[in-house]
Each structure stands twice: as structure tokens, then as C-alpha cells.
């Protein structure tokens, strides 16, 4: 797994709770280094230890913590490219939901070792969806729940987004999220422009 994933957790802690808390978490997780390198490959177990240590130090249950991280990834200004890419992927919140199926492929072209979760999206009723994630560790659904809530807000869509159950198939963790879109344009979408890379 690429360090970028752990580094986003590190970024969240440093930004929201300060460097001191990060230092405590780093020690609790027994990380032998001060910071994650985004492009270095780490063992999957490191992420598990890190999430457990973060929950312990911040005294928070893991799922709400991961939801907050997902929300932060989409709303934190230095990570604007993430929001921009998600917005560009679909012209509406429902488009975005279906584009989740392509996220893993897109990430793999750009960063082959990133290993993002694989998402499947099913329409279960005219305005109800079930998103299934498959990943090597639990937590993908919680992070995605936070991201989808932030993006629904971004699109001006009123939707109810809830985490569902968790099961395991060999080394793969399978989690679900249910999404019910109540109103597609509940309020004005947030402004976004593309190609702001320069």
C-alpha cells in the first residue's frame, strides 16, 4: 500500500488536532519514523495499527473518526484537487456515485501501487443505491461515507448516506453503504473550476 493513504490520515491529525497529537499517535503506533512518505510502500498492517492508535489517542470510535477523515479529504483546501476530480467525474451526485466504479482503475493508471478500494454501485430503487467496497482492511466504507456526505453537500444534493454491514471473503473485507437521494438539487452547487493544477 502506498504511503499516500497513511499520509492523508497523518495530514488530518496534524491539521485538526496538531503536531503534538500526531507525535503521540506515532509513538502509540510504534512508527519508527516521523512522517509518512507519500510514494513509499508500507505494509498494510501499518494502516491498521495507525487507525487503532489514532482512535486511542483521540479517544474516538474508529468509524466516526474515518468518516471525519473522508469529509476532511473533500473539504480541506490543500486537497482541493480531490474535490475537483470528484466533481469533474460526474455532473450530478448520482453520476458521481456511478463513477465510483472507475476510481480504482483511474488511480491505478496514475499510481499503480496506491491500491484504492474497489467499489460496485447498484441501483436498488429509483432513488436508492447500495455501494459495495472491497479492500484489504476495514474502514473503506467509513471514509467513503464521509466523502459522499461532503460531496452531496458540494453538489447541493440532499441525500441520506449510511454505513451498512461488514463481511470478509478471505483477505478481502467487504463493506456496504446505502444512499438514498431525496432531492437532487436541494441547494445551489458549490462553485468549482477545473484544471487548477497550475
Amino acid at each position: 500500500m502506498l504511503g499516500l493513504i497513511c499520509k492523508s490520515l497523518e495530514g488530518f491529525v496534524r491539521d485538526q488536532h496538531g503536531d503534538l497529537q500526531w507525535e503521540r499517535i506515532r509513538r502509540a503506533a510504534r512508527l519508527p519514523f516521523e512522517r509518512f512518505e507519500a510514494l513509499r510502500i508500507y505494509d498494510d498492517a501499518v494502516l491498521m495499527d495507525l487507525v487503532a492508535a489514532t482512535g486511542g489517542v483521540l479517544d474516538r470510535r474508529q468509524s466516526p473518526l474515518l468518516e471525519d477523515i473522508g469529509h476532511w479529504i473533500c473539504t480541506h483546501p490543500p486537497l482541493e484537487p480531490v474535490r475537483r476530480l470528484i466533481r469533474f467525474s460526474g455532473t450530478s451526485f448520482v453520476d458521481l456515485l456511478f463513477s465510483l466504479e472507475e476510481i480504482e482503475d483511474r488511480a491505478r493508471i496514475a499510481l499503480p501501487n496506491l491500491h484504492l478500494p474497489q467499489f460496485r454501485v447498484e441501483l436498488t430503487a429509483s432513488d436508492e443505491f447500495v455501494v459495495t467496497s472491497q479492500w484489504m482492511v476495514p474502514g473503506a466504507a467509513a471514509v467513503l461515507t464521509g466523502m459522499l456526505r461532503a460531496m452531496a453537500d458540494d453538489y447541493g444534493t440532499l441525500a441520506i448516506i449510511e454505513r451498512g454491514g461488514l463481511s470478509q471473503d478471505g483477505d478481502t473485507v467487504i463493506e456496504t453503504i446505502s444512499v438514498r437521494v431525496i432531492e437532487n438539487t436541494f441547494h445551489e452547487p458549490r462553485e468549482f473550476t477545473l484544471g487548477g493544477v497550475r
Partner: peptide, 14 residues
């Protein structure tokens, strides 16, 4: 174009 953008953003990050 969207895939191209993913590459542009990833490239800038790298």
C-alpha cells in the same frame, strides 16, 4: 478527458 485529469493531478502531486 476525466482520466487525463486524474493523471495531471497525480503527476503534480508526485
Amino acid at each position: 478527458m476525466v482520466d487525463f485529469l486524474y493523471l495531471i493531478e497525480a503527476h503534480a502531486m508526485v
